[in-house]
Structures are given as structure tokens and as C-alpha cells.
Simulated scan of single mutants.
Amino acid sequence: MAREIQVTFDCADPGALAPFWAEALGYRVQEPPGNFDSWDEALAAMGVPPERRNDASAVVDPDGAGPRLFFQQVPEGKETKNRVHLDVRAAPGLEGEQRMAALEAECDRLVALGASRVRRFEPDPPLGAGFIVMTDPEGNEFCLD
């Protein structure tokens, strides 16, 4: 039996990191439950004190096909390289310079949203198509692939 997955990010500011990833992936921040107009309104009704309302956030694929991304606040900062990372498929089906141009355009868009560029890896046929390593606004590595 296949299982649904959720990808969880430990972070300092879930309320800021979730919108970055929503924009990066074409996802949306998960809607509040019930008939609430905002998460702040929902959390207040649930009795969550204001200082705990940024403990978590989530983004979802509007088509329901991709995994939910969950962002949870943790007290410690990021200290080492990720052991698991996301590959954002920004140039599927493209090759060579056309592929790299598409990756560069997406890199520029994500940098404008707060990401950082780390390194570009050139195409190395037959197996290496080329990619760009980046970090999100909190330093979590991901690749434009």
C-alpha cells in the first residue's frame, strides 16, 4: 500500500519560510480550518496564545498531487549540511544551454524571494545534466534540477 508523505522543515520562522516555499513550488499556504478567515483567528479561537502562533505552518499542492510541506519552529539554528534536500525540477525535458538558461531564470526569481545561490554545476554528459545548488531564506540547501 502506497503512503502519503509530508516533508518537514525545522526552522526559526515558519510563518516566513512557508510562503517562500509556496511561491517557489507553485503551492499555497494551507487554509485555516472551518470558517475562519485567517490562521490567527483560528488559533485564537483554539486558545493558542499569541507567542505560540508561529510554531508551525504548512504549504500544500493546489492540485493535491505533491507532498505537504510542514514547517515547525525549533530553538536551535541550522549547523551543518542537510542530509536530505529537495530538487526543484525547474527545467524538465530541457538539455544543454536551454536547460541551464531555464535554471538561471528560476534561480534569479528565487533569489528575489530571499533564496541564495551557492554553486552552479555545468552539464557533464552522459549522466550529468547540470544543476544549481541554492539555499532557502533559512539556509536549507536545495537544488534547481
Rank of each mutant, 00 (worst) to 15 (best):
Q98M: 11
P123L: 05
A42G: 01
G93L: 06
A91P: 04
R53V: 07
E141P: 01
E79H: 11
R89N: 09
A115H: 10
G64A: 08
Q98A: 15
P67K: 12
N35Y: 05
K81D: 07
P126M: 11
L25Y: 12
P75K: 13
F20S: 04
G114V: 10
E97D: 15
G64R: 02
W21N: 10
I132V: 13
G34Y: 10
P19E: 11
E104N: 11
C143W: 00
A129I: 05
F142K: 05
K78T: 05
G128H: 06
V59C: 14
G26F: 13
Q30M: 08
F121I: 14
L43S: 06
A18H: 08
N82V: 14
A45S: 06
V74M: 06
D124M: 04
R68Y: 00
A129Y: 09
E23Y: 03
V133L: 14
C107M: 10
L113N: 05
G34A: 10
E79L: 14
A102H: 04
E31R: 15
E122L: 02
L103K: 03
E23L: 11
V84L: 15
A42H: 00
G93K: 04
E104C: 02
G77K: 15
A18E: 07
P62G: 11
D108T: 15
E23H: 03
V29E: 15
F121Q: 05
E138S: 12
D40C: 00
L86A: 03
P126H: 08
A12F: 04
D136M: 09
E41F: 02
E79A: 15
A22I: 09
D13Y: 10
L25T: 10
L110D: 12
P67Y: 04
W39L: 03
D13I: 07
G64C: 04
A45G: 06
P75L: 10
A102R: 14
A44W: 00
K81V: 12
N82I: 07
D136C: 12
G128F: 07
R89W: 08
V84S: 15
A91K: 02
F121T: 08
V111S: 10
R120F: 00
R83A: 15
G77F: 05
V84P: 00
K78I: 14
A65K: 14
P50L: 02
F70L: 15
Q6F: 02
E95Q: 06
F121V: 13
T8H: 08
M134E: 09
E97P: 01
A22L: 03
G114S: 10
D61V: 01
V74F: 05
F142P: 04
E95N: 06
F70I: 13
L113W: 02
L17K: 13
E122C: 03
T8I: 09
T135R: 11
S116C: 08
L127F: 15
A42M: 02
R3D: 07
R89P: 00
G128S: 11
A105F: 06
P126C: 08
